[in-house]
Amino acid sequence: MIRSLLYVPGNMPRFLEKAGQRGADVVIIDLEDAVPDAAKTAARDALSQSVAMIGGRVFVRVNMNERLMDDAVAAVRAGAEALYLPKVSNVDTLHRLADHLAPLERDRAPIAFVPLIEDPEGLFEARSIAKGPRVLGLAAGGEDLATSMGAMPTAEVLRLPKLMIHYAAKAAGVLSFGMFRSTVDYSDIDGLRNAAREARSFGFDGASCIHPSVVPILNEGFAPTEDEIAWARRVVDAARAEAAAGRGAFTLDGKFIDAPIVTRAERVLGKVQS
């Protein structure tokens, strides 16, 4: 599972030192918006030390401009698992990047991509982007997406575009990250908790955050509850018994159970085991 992804500025050693201890499933070292222009090269040059310092699963958010290729190469050499790619508007960007990095990856697994959809053009290309090379998952950049439309990043504004990106990810069989709200207001604990649970009910896999206090909220919100785990175990156990008796559909706790519901229960248990 990737329930929580914690952004950490790539030019802040005191934050990077503690990032691996915050409980996030993934730490995203940010070379883009969180780093001022004057510090971007130094942050890139420090990636090897930063990735090693964090340990665990590390992604790198690169700059989607003339710095892209150098940022990506540095992330590969530092041993990062994936690139968070902002402002992806078409799949051609992914093909060019994959071709550029392939010669450097003979001794390691190819670095994965997580495209961020942050404008209307990318929104309408989300299906092709999701099916592009190396895509691990998709996410929407809520603040940028709203700004590109001249809108405010409210839950109402973000719901439809985030669902479109989410559906594109699920159609392609990749992960989907996000909630129906911006995470900039990290002090709204109850709002974030409700948003995480809501997003999981739609099938989102996890979400990113910019403050470590949000990490446990996401870890809890995107994980199955104890009641859901217990239900899933009952369903799977009953399904095995019914199958042995030659029955594919049955009732459990007064409710009808058939193949899609069994699959849902198996997926719940799969998340616990992962």
Rank of each mutant, 00 (worst) to 15 (best):
V91F: 05
V268W: 02
D37F: 10
I210C: 12
G178A: 08
Q273Y: 09
V157Y: 07
A74P: 06
G203C: 12
A52P: 04
A155K: 01
D37H: 10
K40W: 07
D30T: 11
K87F: 07
A207P: 06
D37V: 06
L116Y: 02
A126S: 13
A130R: 01
S48M: 05
V184C: 11
V8S: 15
I229R: 12
D92F: 11
I117E: 03
T251H: 14
A112F: 15
V157N: 08
L192F: 08
A42L: 08
R14F: 05
D45L: 15
Y167F: 11
R159H: 13
A241I: 15
A109S: 13
Q273E: 13
F256C: 08
V8Y: 11
A43K: 06
D237W: 08
D188I: 01
I129E: 02
P110H: 05
I189Q: 10
A42W: 04
L175W: 05
A38V: 13
H166W: 01
V26T: 08
V58T: 14
A169R: 04
A24Y: 08
G270L: 04
P103G: 11
S4L: 12
K131A: 15
A243T: 10
L192W: 04
P260G: 12
L6E: 15
E220V: 12
I229Q: 09
F222T: 09
A195M: 00
A38K: 12
R61Q: 07
M64N: 12
